[in-house]
């Protein structure tokens, strides 16, 4: 146990005296940026794709769009996110001659990736809304899109809120791979502390605790949000 106390000591020195906390805060910020903006982009893309997928398929255009969307979803769900990051950063961007910071690339790739997953979540959410809601909207002369946006999607989002919360948690966990393209996230910060102090046990333990704390906070947030939404149902 004495050696553990020494390890804690080494960590504290690296963390506080040698400014390790700065990079940890920076890493925490980046992790949250990637997860939050990834989720937002994912929800937007996912909603669009889900809408296309439930579109009536009489005409050619919806069918073509549907084929494109299902290719997109298959592509992003069918490959590991690390591979997507690497291909985007080291293959696509250089080919297009574009320079972009690894943080931006991470946000974009995580957004595109979660868009594919969220589209499936959103689709089941949309399908869980009674079809009569769409019919009622169409019957008063609103278009498919308007009814979708004002009536169906808000109800769908409410139904899938817990699942969306899980997706957010999954995103936060997965961000730990962005160091593959050089972005500095939580993992990278603690890895650096470990490397500099030749001691990994305590840094990785603290890192795990921080991840757990974040996940628990978000879970709590989702619970509160759900409770609030349920109240709005009953308001009289």
């Amino acid at each position: 146990m004495g050696s553990f106390a020494k390890k804690v000591d080494t960590f504290l020195t690296a963390f506080i005296d040698n400014g390790g906390y700065v990079s940890v805060l920076e890493g925490l910020k980046n992790t949250m940026i990637i997860a939050v903006f990834g989720l937002i982009i994912g929800i937007l893309i996912g909603t669009v794709i889900a809408t296309v997928r439930v579109l009536p398929k009489y005409k050619t255009l919806p069918r073509v769009l549907d084929a494109i969307c299902s290719f997109y979803v298959g592509l992003f769900r069918g490959t590991p996110i690390v591979v997507q990051l690497l291909v985007f950063y080291y293959v696509l961007l250089p080919l297009m001659g574009v320079h972009m910071s690894s943080l931006y690339v991470s946000v974009i790739v995580f957004g595109l990736n979660s868009g594919a997953y969220i589209s499936e979540i959103m689709r089941s959410g949309i399908q869980s809304v009674d079809h009569g809601q769409m019919e009622a909207g169409r019957a008063v002369g609103l278009s498919f899109g308007t009814t979708m946006l004002n009536i169906v999607i808000p109800q769908a989002v409410k139904n899938i809120l817990p699942t969306l919360g899980n997706e957010f948690i999954a995103l936060i966990k997965e961000t730990s791979v962005v160091s593959f393209v050089g972005a500095s996230d939580l993992y990278k910060a603690f890895n650096m502390i470990g490397t500099n102090s030749y001691e990994f046990m305590v840094p990785y333990l603290v890192m795990a605790l921080i991840y757990i704390a974040i996940v628990m906070l978000i879970t709590l947030g989702i619970k509160l949000m759900e409770r609030g939404l349920r109240k709005s149902d009953r308001r009289s």
Partner: peptide
């Protein structure tokens, strides 16, 4: 069709009020 439906109301067996409004 949306233009014409404005002038042709419909009432359903299951009411179909917008639940989120």
């Amino acid at each position: 069709i949306n233009l014409h439906r404005r002038k042709m109301g419909m009432v359903f067996q299951q009411f179909n009020l917008f639940n989120n409004k």
